[in-house]
Write a protein that binds this DNA or RNA. Structure first.
Lengths: 209, 209
DNA sequence: TTGTTGATTTCGCAA
DNA sequence: TTGCGAAGTCAACAA
């Protein structure tokens, strides 16, 4: 990992074009050749960057980074304040817990929270529109689009006389008011999930299978 | 901007929890207090981070960064390889060109590409569902959700006897086959846009107004 | 390889 | 301030 503090201007030409006027910035060159241009504020997102795979051609006072599909990041370096490099080695990587996949797993083990007497019928149910789990669908954040999606699936399943009547339940930690309004207007039921409750509850439902 | 190269472990607790095993990494502390943990590869996204506004409490061998809504990023520092700081000052910021707003502007000036005799009626048309421009809608990438959205608006407008009959046209540079199938099934017309053509064409349509 | 969806999304605009 | 849609989205996962 190479760290350069420099006064520079930056040009990007790819799907869009972007320019950065001259200023003091941090330039990061990673081991895979990717380049990041950071300012002293904003979010974790760089002002400009080039993702790997890419190639860095270094000339005096100018870096030209070329990406896989021809995008170019050009850094004009006016003054170098600092230029250091450290070998960091490979990173063991991040371990996450508590994302939607995990929530769905917990919900599949405890379908009772969706309503009294509710059970898990099928987790991956293929349909003509796309492969989904219909009987126990969940989402971390439910928007108006989620309502449309659920509505499509319910409608499709009701065309099958062997399954009909099928109802839809929107189960999520957060449901926007707009989504709730639209959902209830279309006959879908809304259930707010408590992630901590799901996690702490004993998985009695598993013994039913 | 403070740059620290250190062997560290990192824990994040917020909407999710995440852990990083011990490894050599770059820690960035920006002027606004935000913290970024970068490895020597991957994308421009840090392995872990804390967005501003936040507060950094530094103890020997341990950083605790607390976010606005109580999330915490804890960095256990086992060994410091380097620790430097540079004042960079404010950044003039990025100038972009060629994104969707630009495309919509071009399309508004040349509604004829949507079909013969087509005109721009209204650009920002408020509806009960939300504020949208209905008569000349465009999108850079059209997915199945865009079809649903357009369908909602067309349906809503047709309830108004003063406007009815209203038809929908899906105009975009890219329309996925799934979206096209669904759109045509619902009576929506699909038009593929050529960005370069729109940009280069003389804006004759403007003289019509 | 391609397509679809989630994200500690982030970011920008508009009401 | 809040809400909504785009993003050089990226990244994980399934077909």
């Amino acid at each position: 990992m190479r760290l350069v503090i420099a006064r520079c201007t930056v040009n990007y030409a790819g799907r869009l074009t972007a320019r950065l006027p001259a200023a003091l910035r941090l330039l990061i060159v990673k081991a895979d050749g990717s380049v990041l241009v950071h300012s002293d504020g904003g979010s974790y997102k760089p002002l400009n960057w080039m993702s790997p795979p890419c190639r860095l051609a270094e000339e005096p006072g100018r870096w030209v980074v070329t990406g896989k599909s021809g995008e170019t990041l050009t850094v004009h370096i006016e003054e170098i304040i600092s230029d250091t490099a450290y070998p960091l080695g490979a990173d063991p990587g991040l371990v996450k817990d508590g994302v939607e996949a995990h929530l769905q797993e917990l919900l599949a083990a405890q379908p009772g929270v969706l309503g009294d007497g509710w059970r898990l019928i099928r987790r991956e149910y293929p349909t003509a529109i796309g492969p989904v789990d219909l009987m126990c669908r969940d989402a971390v954040g439910v928007s108006i689009d989620a309502v449309e999606q659920l509505c499509r699936y319910v409608e499709l399943l009701n065309r099958d006389p062997l399954l009909e009547p099928v109802g839809g339940v929107l189960a999520a930690q957060v449901i926007t008011p707009q989504a709730r309004t639209l959902a209830e207007d279309r006959g879908l039921r809304c259930v707010i999930l408590d992630y901590d409750e799901l996690r702490q509850a004993p998985r009695n439902d598993l013994t039913l299978f």
